[in-house]
Nucleic acid binder design. Structure first.
Length: 701
DNA sequence: GAGCACTGC
């Protein structure tokens, strides 16, 4: 029996379709199989003990390795033990949408209930829960949003935070919040005193039951969580994985790409059947290794050429991603060249061999320059462990680490928590909205640097979300915290409302929140560029995005099909393909547009358009994004006004060749150079006119 | 002349 689909796309039980000839018999056997499978999981034997521990302890840390069954089974144990009485729910959070969905489906099946009844999931844009839902799987970000509306999370008797070891920003903030909520719910009503903040408010005059917290982690190190929760009890649940042989090189490899290639062919020619998974750092590397594999295959005798290289990374359109899942033709061995996406987000069946060069591309943030960077850095021990585990899902496997064992010992235990390497403005705005005012003194698991906090506070103040005393500004700060957007985009919507171009800004912001709306395949670069030119505005990327979105809308209007979501998707996909637009991104932008439009309408804004007056819209962009402006230098490079950095226009910008004098931009990121992305041409005088609190002199720099 | 991975009632 394959191990559980954790974020995987396939569930073993779903594949067992009932036999139409004898539905009762096969349904019975499916139920039997499910029961057998559940009983065989390592966690099944400790059900009684786990429930006792939950009853005894308000906080419990569960360390469970892959395949223990903790994510699917523990919520069912809790349900059976009566934790969902009186309408209370058990909430289970996941860092990823796909995991919330697949696990909920699986558990509904195991409970033999319809999804959305006793068992359901809720993620952004897709909520299957109902009033009868008792086991609710969701993303951690969504629970954070829920806390803004119900600060005591009063509908939950137990909250399970799964995959806590990944230490995403959402998980870290959620854990801090849950710690506070739990204390608030323990205190008798009215004893919180007059100084209470809003996390503690709201339970006046009403009885609220205690909240149980369960932190689940696959970490080697549960101490961090245990210490954070005041020495909370940690229990270990055995995993169930097939053994994976770890092999190291004798000497350091100077060229890990070449070492990976050599290893691929060594496995292909010498090892037994089974597919190969290679972890590389990015699209470029993946595509060049793909070419090199193809080339070297040509040098092999005909009968040894049955090796099929496939690629997978997040920017790849879904259809092409799916190719990695299809079984190889008979006699062929697949070699999957993947980024980190294959570490946790997707599970490809059939992998027996993993090649791990030991590197990862990671984002980091420099608060003083307001600049992000993407650097190739050594992976952590936890990551390399996760990677090798990918070889042991279906049978014994092998993992080839392309460095000596002594190098492994030097790796960091775990990846630096994301909260220590990202822009904090959104996190801080959320905390402020939850009534937490002392950010510097806030009880983070890992405290971000003081500089990073100060920078974010300053940004929020400049955006008008905070007062000079760093209190939430009324009403702007509250409005901004309610929108599921970066604070700077929320601010843009509020300004656009005042400047009568809210319709345009809603679309623009929706597109800016997605990862690249254009699809730009290397092999059809000329065609893709021609298509981009068709949409391009000489005034910049924002106006270009506006016309892409509007044209897709018009196309849909013209084709006015009666209703069905599926049909709309199909038509949009075709349009996207013809126009080199990434359909996943466009769909996401359309969903976001709908959601944020609803939000601003609820705030009482009227969505009005500036029609053809793009000047007014660009002025609004300047007023919104004044913190990120750049001016051309004599030598043709640009200087970012805020940080003074010398920057370059990113080649994907429609302004790449036009070299305007002054622009605002949304993103400053260092990769091979310091690039600015998503730009619009502005008149530099607008900055002093529209953001006088920031640009005091008449001539910016 | 170039894009690690996630996420938000």
């Amino acid at each position: 029996m394959p191990s559980m689909a954790q974020g995987g796309l396939n569930s073993s039980v779903q594949n067992n379709k009932p036999n139409p000839k004898s539905p009762t018999a096969s349904l019975f056997s499916i139920r039997q199989k499910i029961a057998q499978h559940r009983k065989s999981l390592p966690i099944a034997s400790v059900e009684k003990r786990l429930i006792e521990e939950v009853q005894k302890n308000d906080i419990l840390i569960i360390v469970g390795e892959t395949g223990s069954g903790k994510t699917t089974q523990l919520p069912q144990f809790l349900y059976n033990a009566g934790f969902c009485q009186e309408g209370k729910m058990v909430g289970i959070t996941q860092p990823r949408r796909i995991a919330a969905v697949t696990v909920a489906k699986r558990v509904a099946e195991e409970c033999d209930v319809e999804l959305g009844q006793r068992v359901g999931y809720s993620i952004r844009f897709d909520d299957t829960t109902s009033t009868s839902t008792r086991l609710k799987y969701m993303t951690d970000g969504l629970l954070l949003r829920e806390a803004l509306l119900d600060p005591h999370l009063s509908r939950y008797s137990v909250i399970i935070v799964d995959e806590a070891h990944e230490r995403t920003v959402h998980t870290d903030v959620l854990l801090a919040l849950l710690k506070k909520v739990q204390r608030a719910r323990l205190k008798p009503v009215g004893e919180n005193g007059p100084q209470q903040n809003s996390v503690l408010r709201g339970c006046q005059g009403r009885k609220i039951s205690p909240l149980k917290l369960i932190i689940m982690s696959a970490s080697l190190d549960a101490r961090v969580f245990s210490e954070y929760f005041g020495g909370a009890k940690a229990v270990h649940v055995e995993g169930r994985q097939h053994p994976v042989d770890i092999l190291y090189t004798a000497h350091p490899e100077s060229d890990y790409i070449d070492a990976a290639l050599v290893t691929i062919f060594q496995i292909h020619l010498e090892e037994k059947v089974g597919d190969i998974l290679v972890f590389l750092t990015g699209q470029d590397e993946i595509e060049s290794v793909e070419r090199l594999v193809q080339e070297r295959l040509q040098h092999l005798p005909e009968d040894k050429r049955k090796l099929l290289p496939l690629t997978i990374f997040s920017a790849l359109p879904s259809e092409q991603q799916m190719q990695a899942f299809a079984p190889a033709p008979t006699g062929f061995r697949k070699v999957i060249l993947a980024t980190n996406i294959a570490e946790t987000s997707i599970t490809i069946p059939g992998i027996r061999y993993v090649i791990d060069p030991g590197f990862v591309k990671a984002r980091s943030y420099n608060p003083s320059k307001g600049m992000e960077s993407l650097d190739v850095v050594p992976a952590s021990k936890a990551q390399t462990l996760q990677r090798s585990g990918r070889a042991g899902r279906e049978g014994p496997g092998k993992c080839f680490r392309l460095y000596p064992e002594r190098e492994f010992e030097k790796l960091e235990d775990s990846t630096k928590p994301e909260i220590k390497r990202c822009n904090l403005s959104n996190v801080i705005l959320q905390l402020k909205a939850l009534g937490i005012d002392d950010i510097i003194g806030f009880d983070f698991i890992d405290k971000p640097s003081r500089g990073s906090i100060v920078k974010a506070l300053e940004e929020l103040r400049l955006l008008g979300a905070l007062t000079d005393e760093c209190k939430l500004e009324n009403p702007v700060g509250y409005q901004m915290s309610r929108l599921p957007l970066d604070p700077v985009y929320s601010r843009a919507l509020i300004l656009a409302n005042q400047m009568n171009c809210l319709e345009e800004m809603l679309i623009t912001v929706a597109v800016l929140t997605v990862e690249s709306i254009f699809y730009d395949p290397r092999e059809k670069r000329e065609e893709a560029r021609a298509s981009r030119n068709h949409f391009a505005s000489v005034e910049g990327d924002h106006l270009t995005y506006l016309s892409v979105y509007r044209e897709s809308d018009e196309f849909l209007e013209k084709r006015k099909v009666a209703g069905s979501e599926n049909k709309i998707d199909k038509i949009m996909k075709k349009w996207c393909k013809d126009n080199f637009v990434n359909s996943r991104s466009l769909k996401h932008a359309r969903d976001t547009y709908r959601q944020i439009r609803e939000h601003v309408e609820q705030m009482g804004f009227t969505v009005s358009s500036c029609g053809n007056d793009m000047l007014e819209f660009r002025r609004c962009l300047a007023a919104s994004f004044f913190l990120k402006a750049a001016q051309r230098q004599l030598d043709g490079t640009y200087r970012a006004l805020e940080s003074g950095e010398i920057v370059h226009i990113h080649p994907t910008s429609v302004l790449f060749r036009s070299k305007p004098e002054c622009v605002i931009f949304n993103e400053l990121m260092q990769t091979s150079k310091k690039y600015i992305k998503n730009l619009t041409i502005i008149d530099p005088l607008w900055l002093t006119e529209l953001a006088p609190h920031h640009y005091k002199s008449a001539e910016p720099v």
